[in-house]
């Protein structure tokens, strides 16, 4: 099976066995219906068990699945009359971020998202979905344009991180991301952000400051990739699995921590099993977010963002001036 993930192997094995039995029954004309029914029951229980109890690492694998729907896939399902717009007007065009205008249920919107490639050739063109400063500056240009024409902004986040390279540093990767954070904080139109795959650090956050932030069930969002965390914390990038579990990076974790507004359930086994159905689920969440946010005034939108982020963080106070035990 193409794109089969390690934790799904027992399911694939069982499916194979059922198929074998079925063909055997047809060939030899022996009635094996009882056996097949019992195996099918076992399969559905196994699927239930596997997909209900996915570990953080399983989710990371699903989020990285080569067939997982990308920003442009969802755009084709979600927005009518979409026109892609290019370039930051300052340096160049970065295909790791796509953006444009379109219609959502009769409402004009601006859509921005990080874009992975589907194959090696496209991945090279799109720099594996790792944006340069010009990508973030293109995103900002489109957001300011949305503000001018009172269009809500929808951001789809999916990146392994902002590109770590010489050219990116020379052109101000830090400044490009930092500028977006500040400008998104003050944008006078609704911003809805959805993590659809990988949400790595500042590279994701660079288009991720929103009134509402949602996550697909099997996406991850973290201060650093599991591999990066493992190599910093334990000097061993092979401990990524352990890092994924302890860093609290999955949608259920982030929902519990109060970082995201909604976790969007995925189709069984992950979005790639049924992109059209997944798009419908995303559509419903965008719809309800928009309904809520379109009622807010410009000032209320900015105020809502202020309060949202102001409340993030855990700290305490001590009586002594220096808290040494």
């Amino acid at each position: 099976m193409v794109g089969e993930l390690e934790f799904e192997r027992p399911i694939t094995e069982l499916k194979k066995k059922i198929a074998e039995l079925k063909s055997f029954m047809e060939e030899k004309g022996i009635d094996l219906t009882d056996e097949i029914t019992s195996l099918e029951e076992r399969l559905s229980a196994l699927q239930e068990d596997t997909y209900e109890n996915m570990s953080a690492w399983d989710r990371v694998l699903v989020a990285r699945h080569p067939e997982r729907p990308t920003t442009l896939d969802y755009i084709s399902y979600l927005f009518k009359d979409f026109i892609e717009l290019h370039g930051d007007r300052l340096y160049g065009e970065d295909e790791a971020i796509v953006g444009g205008i379109g219609m959502f249920h009769g409402q004009p919107v601006t859509v921005i998202g990080q874009q992975r490639g589907r194959d090696t050739k496209e991945n090279i063109r799109r720099n594996f979905g790792m944006p340069h400063p010009e990508g973030y500056r293109k995103a900002l240009r489109l957001m300011k344009q949305a503000e001018k024409f009172s269009r809500p902004v929808i951001c789809l986040m999916d990146t392994k991180g902002a590109f770590p390279g010489k050219s990116a540093e020379e052109r101000g990767q830090s400044e490009a991301i930092a500028r977006n954070l500040v400008e998104m904080a003050g944008l006078h139109v609704p911003i809805i952000c959805i993590v659809i795959g990988e949400g790595a650090s500042g590279g994701a956050l660079g288009i991720g400051v929103g009134n509402h932030v949602h996550m697909l069930e099997n996406s991850w969002y973290s201060v650093i990739s599991p591999e990066g965390a493992a190599s910093i914390l334990w000097k061993d990038s092979t401990k990524a699995k352990l890092a994924a579990e302890s860093m609290k990076i999955t949608a259920p974790d982030l929902k519990e921590l109060g970082i995201i507004d909604e976790m969007i359930p995925e189709v069984k086994g992950g979005a790639h099993h049924d992109p059209a159905e997944q798009a419908k689920r995303i559509e419903a969440v965008i719809q309800s977010s928009l309904e809520e946010l379109m009622n807010l005034s410009e000032e209320e939108l900015v105020e809502q963002r202020y309060e949202k982020y102001k409340n993030m963080g855990k700290f305490t106070f001590v009586n002594d001036s220096i808290a040494v035990k």
Binding site: A185, G186, G208, R305, K310
Partner: peptide, 22 residues
């Protein structure tokens, strides 16, 4: 960012930014 605080540490970038914007 401080790794041991995970996503909360990332969110401090956004928090300081909304304050700076004001």
């Amino acid at each position: 960012a401080r790794m041991q605080e995970g996503i909360l540490s990332l969110m401090q970038m956004a928090k300081t930014s909304v304050a700076l914007k004001r």
